[in-house]
Design a protein around this nucleic acid. Structure first.
Length: 414
RNA sequence: GGAGACGUGGCCGAGUGGUUGAAGGCGCACGAUUGGAAAUCGUGUAUACGCUAAACCCGUAUCGAGGGUUCGAAUCCCUCCGUCUCCGCCA
């Protein structure tokens, strides 16, 4: 959600910012609505003041009649004000966040810029994860399709446990080493919550909805960030750092035909998420820290990765700046996204009315919110399978850091 | 699922149609008092929007949310959301 005051004062800057997102100037329409709305409000308030003055003047019948006469005009103005306000809010709610100055320009993912690389990819090409998994007999897409359709999978035995081990390992790393508080949040949320983090109104078709009207979370960013919705938190308690391990549900409506094989892109997957709530001053540094937290997970797992900063055309709706971390997949012979770390600035905070206040201060400010995968568990599983694949016996070596979570198991074999 | 009670300011709690943005208390802030503190006394203490260059002032709205009745609603009616109690059911 955008600050109408900013648009009033610096319409050209706002249009320029939206221009980087490939949008035509938005301020003329917005300012027109805003002006009309305020005109209606001002006039309405004048009439209300008039009415109130008569009210305290006495109870004479004549005064009552005069107030009745005001009523029609007031009703008109009130409904006009409401319509204009709704229209204005719809407009503001559907526009993407303003990009940070240091986000590179670019039309699509080709404009993204690599910022660092870690680890050395193995030299050989391995089978893809689904080939390894099916050969082991521990990954079954057919049976999953029978009960649920495309883009679902059944993991069993060693792979099921590996998935659980990965999640445990990530949670322990973030809670014990990175200062995050573990949360077990609701997986079903209401409209307002989805609006707060920006999934609604624009991206409804990407979500699953229950017959009751609840939404299945597409990421635990949604419930974790909304913890502070409608709150005024003391700045001294910031940053708040939350992590959660949850399933995520996505329709993948716009990805028909993409990544149809294997478990790269599923309707349901597990993810360990990190969310931070900060003051406006500290969010930029917090984002760098959060990227580091995600990278630590991959370093410990011993998986080669690169970190890139997304360009203007690839940065998501609610983000001001996003880093993606991509892991090396020797089965595909390329890097694939495993984490996305975004600083949303005050964009989500405005939508969900999340504010902070310095101790003793009178005024409040919107908090800054950040979210990042820490990391996607399903894709981490794939990365482990391919990077730790042993061609000698088609087995998967268990990374050292995961062995305690696997009962000491060193290799997943047939 | 059945029956009932309830939702007022940071908190507790008055208030069933008009001068109530809202008594009283607690808390908090500032001041007085004190060697200092406690106690005591005094003053102040919601948010949003509009107006304004901005601030103050002023205006408007807000008593869970939304709608309705009325000249006028915290107070009456409807819907929804939430909380609590009892019964039933259940992981």
């Amino acid at each position: 959600m955008h600050d109408i005051n900013f648009i009033r004062k610096q319409p050209q800057d706002f249009d320029k910012a939206m221009g980087r997102r490939g949008l035509t100037p938005q301020s003329p329409e917005i300012l027109k609505l805003d002006e009309e709305r305020r005109a209606a409000q001002t006039e309405l308030q004048k009439l209300q003041a008039e009415r109130n003055a008569k009210k305290s003047g006495g109870n004479a019948q004549a005064l009552m009649d005069e107030v009745t006469a005001l009523k029609n005009r007031m009703d008109d103005l009130a409904s006009r004000e409401k319509t204009l306000a709704e229209s204005l809010n719809q407009h503001l709610a559907s526009l993407p966040n303003i990009l940070a100055d240091d986000v590179p320009d670019g039309a699509d993912e080709h404009g993204n810029v690599e910022v660092r690389k870690h680890g050395t990819p193995r030299a050989d090409k391995t089978p893809e994860h689904f080939e390894i998994g099916e050969k082991l007999g521990l990954m079954d897409f057919e049976t999953a399709a029978k009960m649920s359709g495309a883009r679902f999978v059944i993991l069993s035995s060693g792979l099921a446990r590996l998935e659980r081990a990965l999640a445990q390992f990530m949670l322990d790393t973030h809670t014990q080493e990175h200062g995050f508080t573990e949360i077990s949040p609701p997986l079903l949320v209401n409209d307002q919550t989805m609006f707060g983090t920006g999934q609604l109104p624009k991206f409804a078709e990407e979500q699953f909805r229950t017959t009751r009207g609840d939404w299945l979370i597409p990421t635990s960013e949604v419930p974790l960030t909304n913890i502070v919705a409608e709150m005024i938190v003391e700045e001294e308690t910031l940053p708040r750092r939350y992590t959660a391990f949850t399933p995520c549900f996505r329709q993948e409506a716009g990805a028909a035909g993409k990544d149809t094989r294997g478990m790269i892109r599923q309707h349901q997957f597990y993810k360990v998420e990190m969310v931070a709530i900060t003051t406006p001053e500290t969010s930029a540094a917090e984002q760098e820290r959060m990227v580091g937290c995600a990278e630590t997970v991959l370093k410990k797992l011993g998986i080669p990765y690169r970190t890139i900063v997304l360009c203007s055309g690839d940065t998501g709706f609610g983000a001001r700046k996003t880093y993606d971390i991509e892991v090396w997949l020797p089965g595909q012979g390329r890097y694939r996204e495993i984490s996305s770390v975004s600083n949303c600035w005050d964009f989500q905070a405005r939508r969900m009315n999340a504010r902070c206040r310095a101790k003793g201060a009178k005024d409040t400010r919107f908090v800054h919110t950040l979210n990042g995968s820490g990391v996607a568990v399903g894709r981490a599983l794939i990365a482990v399978m391919e990077n730790y694949y042993d061609p000698a016996d088609d087995g998967i070596v268990v990374p050292d850091v995961l062995r305690p979570y696997m009962g000491g198991l060193a290799k997943i074999k047939n």
